[in-house]
C-alpha cells in the first residue's frame, strides 16, 4: 500500500508521519508538496500536523485552497482512506470534507501531553484493529482543538456513529468530548491526537500503530484478496 504525506509550508509532523509509515508500519510512503496536481498513484492520503501557512487567518483556512486539496477531495470521493491529524484535521474541516470547526482551547493554553481516548466506533477502516470501547493513550499538541458543531450536526454524528474517538478527560473543551470523527462514508478521519507519535513503546505508547495497521488491513481485504 502506498501512502502520500502531504507537506504544506509550515507542516511540522510530516517527518513523524513518514517515519511511522515507513519504519514502523513497513509500507511505501512519499512526501507530496502542496502544489501537486495528481494523487492517483497513492492508495492512502495523510495530512500531517503543524502550522500550515502559519495558521494565518484561521488554522487550515489557507491550506484548504492549495492545489493538492482538490486532489485530496477527489481521493476522498473515490473512497480512498484520508487521515488528517491535528492541523490536518483542521484542514479537513475547513475544506468541508468533515463537518464542524475548531475554536481556541477552552483554557487558551497550548496543550501538549499524552491523553486517554476511548475508541467509540471500531467499525471503521481506521479502527478495526481496536476493541470497541478500548482505552488508548495518544499525545495531543494543539492550541486550537476545541471542536464545535451545531446540535443538529452533533445529532447526525451520533446517529451515524461518526464519532470515532472521545477524550476520557476532555483537555480542550470539545463538544461531546470529541477527539476524532469520520465522514458519513467512513473513509475520511480527522483527529486532534497524534497517532504517528505513538507507534513505538520507546515513544511512550504504541497505541497509534493499530490505526495505521487497520488502514492497511482494510485496503488489503478490498484490493489484494479480491484481485
Amino acid at each position: 500500500m502506498k501512502f502520500a504525506v502531504i507537506v504544506f509550508p509550515g507542516s511540522n509532523c510530516d517527518i513523524d508521519m513518514y517515519h511511522a509509515i515507513k519504519d514502523e508500519l513497513g509500507e511505501e510512503v512519499e512526501y507530496v508538496w502542496h502544489d501537486e496536481t495528481n494523487l492517483d498513484r497513492f492508495d492512502g492520503i495523510l495530512l500531517p500536523g503543524g502550522f500550515s501557512y502559519g495558521d494565518y487567518l484561521r488554522s487550515g483556512a489557507i491550506a484548504r485552497f492549495s492545489n493538492v486539496m482538490a486532489e485530496v477531495i477527489k481521493a476522498a470521493k473515490e473512497g480512498k482512506p484520508v487521515l488528517g491529524v491535528c492541523n490536518g484535521f483542521q484542514i479537513l474541516l475547513e475544506s468541508g470534507l468533515l463537518p464542524g470547526a475548531m475554536r481556541r482551547n477552552e483554557s487558551l493554553k497550548f496543550i501538549c501531553k499524552p491523553v486517554e481516548l476511548v475508541v467509540e466506533n471500531n467499525d471503521t477502516m481506521f479502527t478495526a484493529g481496536y476493541g470497541q470501547g478500548e482505552r488508548i493513550v495518544i499525545p495531543v499538541a494543539h492550541g486550537e482543538g476545541n471542536y464545535y458543531c451545531d446540535e443538529e450536526t452533533l445529532e447526525r454524528l451520533k446517529e451515524n456513529n461518526q464519532i470515532v474517538f472521545r477524550y476520557t478527560n476532555n483537555p480542550n473543551g470539545s463538544i461531546a468530548d470529541i477527539a476524532g470523527i469520520v465522514n458519513e462514508k467512513g473513509n475520511v478521519l480527522g483527529m486532534m491526537p497524534h497517532p504517528e507519535r505513538a507507534v513505538d513503546e520507546l515513544l511512550g505508547s504504541a497505541d497509534g500503530l493499530k490505526l495505521f495497521q487497520s488502514i492497511v488491513r482494510s485496503w488489503r481485504e478490498n484490493h489484494v484478496l479480491s484481485s
Binding site: 484561521r58 489557507i62 485552497f65 474541516l93 475547513e94 464542524g100
Partner: peptide, 8 residues
C-alpha cells in the same frame, strides 16, 4: 469562501 468560517 475564505475570510470567515461560517460554521462559527
Amino acid at each position: 469562501k475564505l475570510l470567515t468560517n461560517t460554521v462559527i
